[in-house]
Design a protein around this nucleic acid. Structure first.
Length: 508
RNA sequence: GGGCCGUUAGCUCAGAGGGAGAGCACCGGCCUUUUAAGCCGGGUGUCGCUGGUUCGAGUCCAGCACGGCUCACCA
């Protein structure tokens, strides 16, 4: 390309860019060019800060006006400009990060005419560092009286409006950075989430567990009844599936002699999206040898109750209009009792298996080849689950829908399994792990039949897993806890997207 | 995937057959303790997209796209 042509194409490129820019964006771009002409480093490499905004607020808010003056506290504190009040030869502005905000005061006679004019090239959204001495204004607001300031980054887009902020839910999720800038309270949800996960790690580490990482790419997806995402490994020429659960690998580790293992990571399920479902979600799974599902119930109570006391400072959690009491012990009801008490279906009708299957068929017309157990499960999900607000262990569901759990000792049709339901959501799922390789093989084969009958969620046959059981799996209790949903409850958020930083959205 | 609702300025929203509007933000002017700073002046727009009805469509109709709620599925 000739020089002339190149210049032309550059010019037209700029023109195209400008035509896509709003008036406000053009103004900001021009201000940056002016800063460049003033020899301001537009993208500085570093800044020597003495305090974060929160350090200043927490450290000096309580001091009286006079004490603050006496102390003569010098700070260099960086932050994003979120408001500017220009008043001729003086300017007030606030800088903020997603935790707190701090006012700064700029006077022309303090910083000099040239610097004061330079500040007029700054916009709401720009990141700067303010150097100065702390004082309190007439209204007792802690403020930095600026001696100088340093430009750190230009914000090329106008920020949303200061009263209502960013409300558009779609934009909040697509541009989470903007959500965090405009709605700093949102960052509390993710700080809470981080604290919960840190608590979980501490809890299991202190209980003698080790944290492990098992494959997220499986050649045979297993450990749950769900549809997987499929992918492909080029060099090996191999189909792979993103894991739907880590379960079968974690139990292989119990076979291998690790007595207590846990894993916190993502599972992927190729299902619908809803306020309770994101295609990738975070699951805690833990397995403990020489234990059964009763031990898992005790641990679950201890973990979540302790977490609430430690992080929220209460055992009564507010979720929407409800107050959830985490006081131990939690309610335990059998699956049958739950169906009888909450489904609104007369208990006698459950004797009529064909009738129940028919009823479930009307509730879930997409499902084909329903078994009695699967039918009960549909009725449970549809009519029972959302009535269980207080933490409730629903125990002993049908064995048919629990292909990885031991049958109870009393009833061969029921599984030693519980689902923990809170706020109408399934939070945890645990069982006494099936350890009989022949029985496991049989269950897988039954699942395979169901799959052939059109049940897309049915479990695949994992022959390597059966082989591992043949080396001996001790009596083991295992459990999965949906972290996103637990965060929803602790953070009092009704949508899973509010607790996932970047929830999956359709491509625009 | 079904049902209902939504999409208008950078943001938050009004406008429901006939002039493209408000507040904040932005631009120009005044203003050295303001804080939803204030005062004076300025509207910056592909009314989501594509068709249709109409003399005339932001407004009515159809289709599409994206989103929210909800149902289905799932944890």
């Amino acid at each position: 390309m000739s020089e002339k042509k190149e210049q032309q194409s550059k010019a037209s490129l700029n023109k195209t860019e400008d035509s896509n820019k709003s008036d406000q964006e053009i103004v900001r771009f021009e201000k940056m060019e002016k800063l460049a002409r003033e020899n301001i480093n537009l993208f500085p490499h570093n800044v020597k800060k003495t305090h974060s905004i929160i350090d200043v607020i927490e450290g000096f808010s309580s001091l009286s006006k006079e004490d603050l003056e006496k102390k003569n506290v010098k700070v260099t504190v960086p932050g994003r400009i979120i408001s500017i009040r220009r008043m001729g030869r003086a300017t007030f502005f606030h800088i903020a990060d997603c935790r707190s905000r701090l006012q700064a005061y700029l006077k022309e006679d303090k910083v000099g005419k040239k610097n004061y004019q330079l500040f007029s090239l700054f916009d709401i959204g720009d990141i700067i560092s303010v150097e100065g001495v702390l004082f309190k204004t007439r209204t007792e607001e802690l403020t930095v009286l600026a001696d100088s300031f340093t430009f750190l980054a230009k914000c090329f887009h106008p920020l949303p409006e200061k009263w209502h902020g960013l409300q558009d839910v779609e934009l909040r999720y697509r541009k989470r950075y903007l959500d965090l800038i405009m709605n700093p309270a949102e960052s509390e949800v993710f700080r809470l989430r981080s604290a919960m996960i840190a608590y979980i790690r501490k809890f299991f580490d202190q209980n003698g567990y080790i944290e492990v990482e098992t494959p997220m790419m499986h050649s045979v997806p297993g450990g749950a009844l769900a549809r997987p995402f499929k992918t492909f490994h080029n060099a090996l020429g191999m189909d792979l599936y993103l894991r739907i659960a880590p379960e079968l690998y974690l139990k292989r580790l119990i076979v291998g002699g690790f007595e207590k293992v846990y894993e916190i990571n993502r599972n992927f399920r190729n299902e619908g999206i809803s306020s309770e479902h994101n295609p990738e979600f975070t699951m805690l799974e833990f397995y403990q040898a020489y234990s059964d599902y009763f031990d898992m119930m005790e641990m679950t109570e201890e973990l979540i109750h302790g977490m609430s006391l430690s992080i929220l400072g209460t055992e009564d959690v507010t979720f929407g209009d409800n107050t959830i009491s985490l006081k131990r012990p939690w309610k335990r009801v059998t699956y049958k009792e739950a169906l009888a008490s909450y489904s609104g279906i007369a208990p006698a009708r459950f004797e009529n298996k064909a009738g129940i299957i028919e009823l479930a068929g009307t509730l879930a017309p997409d499902k084909k080849g329903l078994s009695y157990g699967k039918a009960l499960d549909i009725i449970f999900d549809k009519h029972v689950k959302h009535n269980l607000i207080q933490p409730t262990f629903v125990i002993n569901p049908p064995k048919e829908v629990s292909p990885l759990a031991k049958a109870t000792e009393k009833n061969p049709d029921e599984a030693e399994r519980f689902e923990l339901v809170m706020c109408g959501m399934e939070i945890a799922n645990a069982f006494s792990e099936l350890s009989d390789p022949a029985e496991q093989k049989k269950r897988f084969e039954q699942q395979e039949e169901a799959r052939k009958g059109g049940d897309e969620d049915a479990h695949w046959i994992d022959t390597d897993y059966i082989h591992s059981l043949e080396y001996g799996l001790p009596p083991t209790g295992g459990e999965g806890i949906g972290i996103d949903r637990l965060v929803m409850i602790f953070a009092n958020r009704k949508s899973i997207r509010e607790v996932i930083l970047f929830p999956l959205l359709r491509q625009k």
